[in-house]
């Protein structure tokens, strides 16, 4: 994959990514805007996300 990508020039990459962003990703943006918590504008009393990550989770370090 990387070998193919490095063959693409900077200008080609910019053009491909611009089209990809503006055309292909457009429909997903509305969905993401409503789903991604940090970007949602709805007011609330706290911005802390309660989570629970412990060292006992042995898969924690496998995920890339």
């Amino acid at each position: 994959m990387k070998k193919i990508l490095v063959l693409i020039s900077d200008i080609q990459m910019t053009i491909i990514m611009t089209i990809f962003y503006l055309v292909i990703l457009a429909p997903f943006s509305l969905f993401v805007k409503s789903k991604i918590k940090p970007f949602k504008t709805k007011k609330k009393n706290s911005n802390w996300e309660r989570i629970h990550i412990t060292s006992n989770n042995k898969d924690l370090m496998k995920q890339y």
Binding site: T14, Y21, L22, V32, I36
Partner: peptide, 15 residues
Amino acid sequence: LSSLATYPAGLPFFV
């Protein structure tokens, strides 16, 4: 995801 959340203004950052 943050590039999508800021669509379309996030284009320069995305690229």
